[in-house]
């Protein structure tokens, strides 16, 4: 991303933050900090999605942004839920690798669809003691705009995305349900989920290559 944009973002932030501070920041995750974090990450992501670099370079950049911005470890463990302890250490490790890969591939396989995407901060609000919910509006050419809420928590002293909520539907809750169903329906074997994830990643990679 352009340095000048970064600079003007940084300058504009205190102003934006001032406008957004409806709720007194009492909780651990400061709402202003959370929304500027989402705004910066979103700008970086949108700039990458809309850049004309080759797809591998863009995927690499998106992967870097996601690793920086998302609490991959925490979200991954949350989603595996009760099966985390059933999994062997080797399975846990492989699950984490596959989970991160799924996250990145799911986005990079859709680069074409996100061409021309823009986003803006919507209403912002505090949700729980620990987390902040930051509302954004995503706009794509020729598509109806839609609203996404980002749940931002503090992980190791840094703001990190811990969930994405679309129209009341939490991604991590839905995905936990999905993964658990795959394991349950395969006799409680975590290996079955790992197989399914591997197949999905190759399908996504094939789609990307097309």
């Amino acid at each position: 991303m352009n340095r000048r944009i970064l600079l003007s973002t940084a300058l504009a932030l205190p102003l934006t933050a001032g406008l957004l501070s409806v709720v007194p920041a009492r909780a651990e995750m400061d709402i202003n900090r959370a929304s500027s974090f989402i705004e910066n990450t979103g700008r970086e992501l949108v700039a990458t999605l809309n850049s004309d670099q080759p797809i591998t370079a863009r995927r690499q950049k998106v992967a870097d942004i996601l690793r920086q911005a998302v609490d991959v470890e925490g979200v991954g463990r949350f989603i595996l839920g009760r099966w985390w302890r059933v999994a062997t250490p080797a399975e846990q490790q492989e699950y984490m690798t596959l989970f991160e890969e799924t996250l990145i591939r799911n986005l990079s396989a859709r680069f074409g669809e996100y061409q021309g995407v823009t986003f803006s901060l919507g209403r912002s609000q505090q949700r729980t003691e620990d987390d902040a919910l930051v509302n954004t509006v995503i706009d794509r050419p020729n598509m109806a705009a839609f609203s996404l809420d980002w749940r931002v928590g503090e992980v190791g002293g840094q703001p990190r995305v811990v969930d994405v909520i679309a129209e009341g539907t939490s991604l991590r809750l839905t995905q936990r349900s999905e993964y658990s169903a795959v394991i349950s329906r395969n006799g409680g074997k975590v290996a079955a989920l790992l197989d399914a994830m591997r197949r999905q990643i190759s399908a996504l990679a094939a789609r990307e290559g097309r």
Binding site: V137, A145, I165
Partner: peptide, 13 residues
């Protein structure tokens, strides 16, 4: 408790 429902931004849904 959640932010603006889709209809508030005119998605039609």
């Amino acid at each position: 408790a959640n932010a603006a429902p889709a209809d508030a931004i005119g998605t039609g849904l």
